[in-house]
Design a protein around this nucleic acid. Structure first.
Lengths: 230, 230
DNA sequence: CAGGGCTGTTACACTTCTGTCGCATAGGCT
DNA sequence: AGCCTATGCGACAGAAGTGTAACAGCCCTG
């Protein structure tokens, strides 16, 4: 099912203050947030809200996070929902157990809110395009996120990993201008510190790749602002 | 309110040397910096300057950074301003997080200035993403902030960055007369030292660009007052 | 461990934009 | 009309933004 609009997140955390801060940040990030403070409610809300992603505290009264996770990953209809586990303990044992229960990612408290946001987005990105099965198209460029292939006309293009992510980002909103900072954010990840000029270089490489069999340059440079497709 | 120009940062740090270094770097990075060396002044300056982001030292005389943060996050009108907390040691970050002051990010001293800049920019981006998907229109001129494109009739116009920002400003309130000083403020940014006559020149350039395919002059000169659209 | 592909940075050339000046012209006032 | 000030506009040097090649480091794979 291809859904648009705000991605829905189910936030399960028993500590009210932490939950509030996280909810605030998630909402600022563009998520529609549903909150639960225990595992039982969480199980119900998964049904009702059908979230795109779940952020789950490990330690909770009644039904623990790990138990919620295990149950959800057992049921076929909820298995596909990415789960990020929050844990207070850093021991490797926990990490392994968390992943064994099927959590898709794992963040240790105290975490950087930014990091958590980045991971949530990454999970979402991972699940969304493929479940949607959408092929992105713009003019004569076709991009299949599932097979990781890019076509121009009837030719298959060869792109590097960064070029690919860059193109995905641009193609998700053709025409929109992305600043170098936004692109760093979306393509490289928000907690990576890379010179903004690097974006230029990769855009250059992407251009070259897109035109490897000829054709016009589909990437528009907006001086003083950034880059856009078309 | 859609603001353009330099992002404003309120830097609150009681140690003069550190404050100076940071202010210097922030300014070099394009921020308009307001400084405070204690929490009380900070609270006042938040009102007066309405900053886009606050960088806040944790340890300070009188009102501590934590307290400032807590107060600001409590009030709806200031809650949206991102706050980056500076803390002296890693363990303290835990405590700050434990206190749930609601800071948006934390940076541990000694920090890399580069990192702090990156985080500040990231926060700014998070809050001020883009002027919503609205297309500004006035008579036969259409301006799409997202794609950074300007049309007159069915022709795409080519504008320079300053001309574009100038036009955005004028189109946000068609008919309103903006003084040269206001335009400098809105388009160039707060404390940029530029001759007011420069506005004339850019208005001239904007006029030329808007009429590059013919058409009437949509910009009205109000002698002794400024410029307006229509 | 050598080779290849990819990445991030840097340097340089090139283009476009910017701010200021000087002078022409228009508008308003007495 | 005559005067004075505000505005328009072309020119220009310097600044800023951008494209690209070159390079060194990294992580693979064979």
């Amino acid at each position: 099912m291809a859904r648009s609009g705000q991605p829905r997140v189910l936030l399960v955390e028993d500590e009210p203050a932490q939950r509030t801060v996280l909810a605030y940040n998630l909402e600022a990030e563009g998520f529609a947030v549903t909150q639960a403070d225990n595992g039982e409610d969480a199980m119900v809300l998964v049904e009702e809200e059908d979230p795109d992603i779940i952020i789950l505290d490990w330690m909770m009264p009644k039904v623990s996070g790990i138990e919620v996770c295990r149950r959800l990953k057992m049921r076929p209809e909820t298995r596909g929902i990415p789960i990020i586990m929050l844990s207070a303990r850093a021991e490797e044992v926990d990490r392994i157990r968390g992943l064994e229960t099927g959590a898709d990612d794992y963040v240790i408290k105290p975490y950087s809110v930014l990091e958590l946001m980045a991971r949530a987005r990454a999970q979402l990105r991972r699940v969304r395009p493929s479940t949607a099965g959408v092929v992105l198209e713009h003019e004569d460029i076709r991009l299949d996120p599932e097979s990781h292939r890019v076509y121009r006309g009837d030719k298959v293009l060869k792109l590097g990993p960064t070029e690919f992510k860059l193109l995905v980002t641009l193609m998700e909103r053709p025409g929109r201008v992305f600043s170098r900072e936004q692109l760093l954010d979306l393509v490289w990840g928000r907690d990576i510190y890379v010179d903004t000029r690097t974006v230029d270089v990769h855009v250059g490489r992407l251009r070259k790749s897109l035109m490897q069999y000829g054709g016009s340059d589909p990437v528009r440079t907006v001086r003083g602002a950034g880059y856009a497709l078309g």
